[in-house]
């Protein structure tokens, strides 16, 4: 398999995971999330030759995604944190959007590192893998996740 075919497969297999993660970083702003996903995969393409199978491919891609999303967002300070709600929508959709708004609001209260940890957890990434992505021990991560979950639950209750 040549590099372009290999990259194509990686892109198709991982697009949705990366998109879900990036969407969390930009509070549901889909256009911005797509831009971030593109930046992430440009980096994946540039660094594919450096991938040495020392980590799982998904861990490697998540590391690039976390670092790239944070770095791009440092540069783009001003972006819309609000979810666009159409003028005419039914109550159910409205409530759903409001719920997501509250969730994003609570996630945005966290530090960037804690935000990365919880977004990965919400994307069903294993705790072992999250520890490898962030660069902290598994034990430290477990304690941290526990604290973040508490904080999020309290925040959502108050929203």
């Amino acid at each position: 398999m040549n590099q372009n075919n290999q990259f194509n497969k990686i892109y198709e297999d991982n697009y949705h995971k990366v998109f879900g993660l990036c969407l969390g970083y930009v509070s549901g702003n889909e256009d911005l999330a797509k831009e971030l996903v593109q930046q992430v995969f440009i980096k994946v393409w540039e660094n594919l030759k450096n991938f040495r199978n020392q980590a799982k491919l998904s861990t490697w891609i998540y590391r690039i995604a976390v670092n790239t999303c944070l770095q791009e967002l440092r540069k783009k300070k001003k972006y819309s944190l609000t979810i666009e709600i159409p003028d005419e929508i039914d109550t159910e959709v409205f409530e759903k959007e409001e719920r997501f708004k509250a969730m994003y609001h609570c996630i945005n209260q966290l530090s960037k590192e804690n935000k990365s940890i919880i977004l990965l957890d919400l994307e069903e990434v294993s705790q072992q893998e999250i520890a490898e992505i962030i660069g902290i021990s598994y034990e430290a991560l477990r304690t941290r996740i526990h604290r973040i979950k508490d904080k999020l639950s309290k925040c959502v209750k108050n929203e």
Binding site: N4, Y11, F19, G20, A33, F41, W45, F100, M103, S153
Partner: peptide, 28 residues
Amino acid sequence: MNNYKDFKEQWGKRSQSELPKNAVADII
């Protein structure tokens, strides 16, 4: 939505974006 479990469940219901066409060529 009172605890983290509910939070996570709701999170999974977010809409997913379709795989963009010709994106790989654009990225390269």
